[in-house]
Every structure is written in C-alpha cells, then in structure tokens.
Amino acid sequence: MSAPLFNALLELADDHLILGHRVSEWCGHAPLLEEDLAMPNMALDMIGAARSLYTYAGELEGEGRDEDQLAYLRYDRDYKNCLLVERPNEDFAHTMLKQLYFAAFMHPYWEAALHSSDETVRGIAGKSVKEVAYHIRHAGEWVVRLGDGTEESAQRMQAAVEALHPYVEEQFHMSSDAQAAADTDALPDREAMRTQWTNTVSNVFDQAKLTMPEVEYPQLGGRTGHHGEEMGHLLSDLQYMQRAYPNMSW
C-alpha cells in the first residue's frame, strides 16, 4: 500500500465531503427555488467525488475500510480537509464565493490529474473536471450578480471576500503526503494551480466589481487536522447515526 497516496487522497476526499455537507445544509432553505435545485446538485457532485476518492483510498490501504468507515468513523484531528471548506455558510454570498474559490482550484487540478500515472485517479478526474467547470460557471455568475447588483448585495459580497480570502492560500500548500504523491505523478502539484486560479477568480471579480484583498496572515492548519470550532459541530451532525448506532447496516 502507498501511505502517502492514501493520505493525499483523504485530503481531497475530505475537502469534497465537507464542502458537499455545507452546501447540502441549504437544501430547502435557498433564496429561490432554482437554487433549491442547483445547490443539492453541486452537493451531489461533491459527495459523489468524495465517495470515489474514499473507496479508492480504502482499497489502497488494504485494511478493509470502505467509504463510510473513512467518511464517518475518524476523529476530528484525522480529517485533513482545508479550512476553507468547513467555514460556515453564513449567507448566500459566502456560500457562492466559497464554491467559486474551491472550483477555481479544482478545475485545473482535475485537468492536470487527467494525465496522472494512476488509472483510477485519471478516471475520477475525467468525471469531476466536467462537474467542476459547471460549478465555476454557476457560482461565478452569482458572484457577478451579487457583486454588481444592489448596494446591499455588493456590500455582502465584498464582506464575503474579506472573510474567506485568508483561507485561499491553504489550497496551494503541499503536505509531505501530497508532495510524495506528486513526485510519482499520481496527483498534481497544488502549487502549480496558482496562475489559473488567479485568472479564473480575477475574471469574475472584474465583472463583479470586487477587489481582491491582500492577505497578510493566511489561515492554515486543516491538512494537519487543526480545525476550527465549527468542525466539531459539523461532525456531530455527519457522524450522529454511525456513532449512536455503531456497527449496523443502513
């Protein structure tokens, strides 16, 4: 088994599961019915990708852990998602911006992963790259509408930018496991996505009349399990059934 690839796949899988969880919290509570359909769609894409990644990670590990054991039955410090994805939904502006930031990273990442040395990774990338292109479009269009909408929406959008921008940098950081996976060409180098991320987001910000802030102190720690206070509450929801009724089939 390849421990670094297993861990690097968990980083990716946790990113997708946790962001999918956050987006799914909107279901039934969206600002308009069309978004009550669109947000579960994005959540389904994210959770679908997480399932493929957990399943493959479990196969590589070879200890019989399936997608649910990896998704539900780890302690908070063992989740390796970046901090951006666990941030609370706050309002629709925060939610769409978070989705744009994540998708603007994942699109070039999955494109690069289409050339992975690992066949399963290539397969997951092939499916995900199409989905995430749609997420950029959907979230990007909303960021433009809200940024260049009313005075209130512009203020809320810029507030979301100020709040979430410190969490962007962590997406490009390479853990030692991610580095080892990149050294064998199994997964792409995260640092290499910086230019494309900036191009995608700048293009949206120009249309949205938003200003890209300078970040003095980036927020890091998710990859080593140093999560925020809200992560435990998210996990209490996510893990509730598996913890309250252990060892049962559902």
Partner: peptide, 17 residues
C-alpha cells in the same frame, strides 16, 4: 446532513431535489 451512509445521503439529496 445526518444520513447514516454516503449512499443514503446521495439518494436523499437527489430525492429532496
């Protein structure tokens, strides 16, 4: 958010959608 497995979670999301 509390569905007991990822398969059930995906199916429920699709259903509510």
């Amino acid at each position: 958010t509390r569905a007991p497995s990822l398969r059930r979670k995906a199916a429920l999301l699709a259903k509510v959608q």
